[in-house]
């Protein structure tokens, strides 16, 4: 009897060894940026377990992937706009094998083949959004706010909110002066700083954690906001309007990339294809609140989501829109210096 038990135990142990280790995909992503349901269904369908690890800023993600380099244990990451080009140029990424990706053709032509990654050799768009103007119509009288420049008006003193994002705030300053939001010219950046420092007395707070909150709190009435946040705020505060400024909106795009030393690129490709299915993309967009670049998925969204101009702008809204690009190290130092001066108020 004992022997039998031992034998069966051994047998179990042996089969345990011989059967393949369950496959794992290490996904490095923003927190709560992928519904649990998607991960569960992916595992059911492919048997690959997704280990979801999170970061809280592009900067932290970049620094970590870069430092880890060879010992990098991530198979898939989701950098924003210009971090794709930066990481690509520094050789941190693995080319994506398009033959293993299904559904690429369903993506919005406006959002593929961008400057950040020509021909999408290294990245596949995941979700995208814009940074525009928020206006609380309940508290603002007089002329409607239609442009970034309107923020400088005296009536908004102490009521303005800006995102706590160096590039975005300078983007606004530069656009108001008629320059590109990606300027690398130190004189233009300085001019933007001068312009922005005129705005500072009006600025009540900077917020990039949850930019809708100062509006909901009643602390600020006008300023910058991300479109997804504006959609979320509408639910409780219908008077908060998302406005596409005349100077042009700031657009950004989060994309899947595969780090150069990924252990399981096969699974990463499978996961990207899985997400590109219209049904899955629609599920993600509805749950997360940002827009999917997947045109087939947009058709499947409920009307109130698909027709929301804040999430899905019209072509006119996107006139003058500008994606942020990598500005290089020299210009970055100039920005950083003026940013600190702006915030410490000297």
């Amino acid at each position: 009897m004992k022997k039998l038990a031992l034998a069966s135990l051994l047998a179990v142990g042996l089969t345990g060894c011989s059967s393949e280790e369950p496959q794992v995909l290490n996904l490095y992503n923003w927190s709560e940026y992928m519904p649990q349901e998607v991960l569960t269904r992916f595992q059911e369908e492919t048997g690959i377990e997704v280990v979801y690890t999170t970061y809280d800023s592009n900067e932290a993600m970049y620094a970590k992937l870069k430092l880890l380099d060879d010992s990098a244990a991530y198979d898939l990451a989701v950098p924003s706009t210009y971090y794709v080009s930066k990481m690509r140029q520094e050789g941190l990424l693995m080319p994506i094998d398009r033959s293993k990706i299904e559904g690429f053709d369903k993506l919005d032509p406006e959002l593929v083949n961008l400057d950040i990654d020509p021909d999408n050799q290294y990245s596949i768009p995941y979700l995208w959004g814009t940074t525009g103007l928020a206006v609380d119509n309940a508290d603002i009288e007089g002329e409607p706010v239609t442009a970034w420049e309107d923020l400088w008006q005296e009536r908004f003193e102490g009521r303005v909110m800006l995102t706590n994002d160096m590039r975005e705030v300078f983007h606004v300053g530069l656009r108001v002066l008629g320059y590109s939001g990606n300027s690398t010219n130190p004189e233009e950046i300085e001019a933007a700083y001068e312009k922005l420092s005129e705005l500072m007395p009006s600025v009540r707070t900077f917020n990039s954690d949850a930019p809708r909150v100062p509006y909901l709190e009643g602390e600020t009435d006008v300023g910058m906001i991300w479109n997804g946040e504006a959609v979320m705020a509408e639910e409780t505060m219908p008077s908060l309007e998302y406005v596409y400024p005349d100077e042009g909106i700031i657009a950004w795009l989060d994309s899947f990339v595969i780090p150069k030393n990924a252990k399981n690129p096969e699974a990463a490709h499978k996961f990207i294809s899985f997400v590109l299915q219209p049904e899955i993309s629609a599920l993600i967009s509805e749950e997360i609140g940002y827009a999917t670049p997947n045109l087939a998925a947009r058709d499947m969204l409920p009307d109130e989501v698909a027709d929301n101009r804040a999430s899905y702008p019209t072509p006119e809204d996107m006139e003058n829109a500008e994606f942020q690009v990598d500005i290089g190290d020299e210009a970055l130092q100039v920005y950083a210096k003026y940013w600190e001066m702006l915030k410490s108020g000297s």
Binding site: W30, E32, Y33, T54, D56, A73, Y74, G228, M232
Partner: peptide, 29 residues
């Protein structure tokens, strides 16, 4: 702790503050 953990943790062992911190990006749920 968040900042130190962000850098010295690997995918095999994730801890709570990291999730909470990056969660605020899509609005504090």
């Amino acid at each position: 702790d968040v900042v130190v953990s962000t850098f010295v943790s690997g995918p095999s062992y994730e801890i709570l503050p990291l999730r909470i911190y990056s969660m605020v990006r899509v609005g504090l749920k």
